[in-house]
Design a protein around this nucleic acid. Sequence first.
DNA 1: CGATTTTTTGACATTCATCAATCTGGGTGG
DNA 2: CCACCCAGATTGATGAATGTCAAAAAATCG
Lengths: 242, 242
Amino acid sequence: MRAVIERHLTKLRARDFVSPDHENAIRESIRDYRDIPADRTVIRANVRLDHCTLLVDGVLCRYKDVRSGERQITELHLPGDFVDLHSFTLKRLDQPVMSLTPCRVASIPHDKLRLLTERHPHLARLYWFATNLDAAIHREWEVSLGRRTARAKLSALFCELLMRLQVVGLADESGYDLPLTQADLGDCTGLTAVHVNRTLKELRGDQLITFQNNRVTIHDLAGLRRAGEFDATYLYLERQHC
Amino acid sequence: MRAVIERHLTKLRARDFVSPDHENAIRESIRDYRDIPADRTVIRANVRLDHCTLLVDGVLCRYKDVRSGERQITELHLPGDFVDLHSFTLKRLDQPVMSLTPCRVASIPHDKLRLLTERHPHLARLYWFATNLDAAIHREWEVSLGRRTARAKLSALFCELLMRLQVVGLADESGYDLPLTQADLGDCTGLTAVHVNRTLKELRGDQLITFQNNRVTIHDLAGLRRAGEFDATYLYLERQHC
DNA sequence: CGATTTTTTGACATTCATCAATCTGGGTGG
DNA sequence: CCACCCAGATTGATGAATGTCAAAAAATCG
């Protein structure tokens, strides 16, 4: 049962030193594993929260609906991510979280997190780091949303997901599984599903990537990076932070 | 000399209880006040940092240049804001910070911040909160950038700035000073300067706001909020957080 | 007061959205 | 196992929002 948060620990270890003592403290605080079907609201916005939710498996997103009926996804969460670590200090979420695929999640009460971070300032900084990394990803999305063409937006997104999935061992050179619809990709990039479709066709035609059967197959990573103006420094993949 | 960080303390107090003890600890850690002309890079990206920078006066922005030569501003910083509190855990910035107006800044070494946060876990959470609020603002900008019309983007931006400036006493009912160019507003909203100009004309024609002589004059706040689909909950203006 | 930046306006181009229809593949009940 | 169903993918035709280019007017600055 404990093994299921391995991806989370892998992600932490990739960032900085985590002692066995820390790891045990984390393992013992995580509880309440549960499964969630696709397309469910997992956390509502503006409701007071007393625990944080860890994504064990599946894909979740933060999003906001706008009046016109469209949706903007503001971040995708992958296995090993805390989806609402910011609720520890914010106490509620400004945007809801929903499942895009069937998911498995676990939780950690804010009280435990408080103890954990007061006893281990190093862990406090490590989790603080994690929320700051979230913000860095938001910033990069702002750049995509504001100033990139449809082609570059999608290319950049596929590059980001590749790097993030590699950290937790869910991607290799050839590509990765991504059980999203083209409409979901449109909600991430501010495009319509129709235009995503046309752009994917173009990327396929240019031998960069194929997105089919819930899988991203990368044919030319260098070309994809170029198309998306992708520079991974915003993902802070180097070690030694806090 | 100490009085100059009052806006920062005002902002903290607006969020949660800050004891005199905490305030003194903060005051004693802040140093190295300096003035910066407009249009200067204040912090370069990807350079190792050992201190955080506090904005005392003026407007700074985080931004990223894209290949096409355009710029996307990802956040505006107002007096009282830490502009790179995230550098405490990230150790470097993923995006540079530049001055849009003449600015006054101060700094606090990471070492001091480390002591401050280890001795006062409450302050640690308060500053953690501050970086999470930054992320919430990023999320709202993502929504604007991805799914809002030019008219709504600008309206939402003017609403956000009104609320944020009110917290530090730099705005009243009638409006606020905003020494930015239309090109700067375009860089915030992902629009061209030309289109910003046309959209401002429209907002003026509709008696919502006037932006002239570096001042935003609000004629119809309710109308502006509607035009921008503005809901301030993402700014976490209520007290009692950490 | 000359020089530069910023704002404003017009004509035209482009990207992406919208609307609508068809196609496809996987799932389901009989 | 098959017929049906349905969400998702694909394509075409057309339209709207915003970008581009260019020039003039206005404001700002040294």
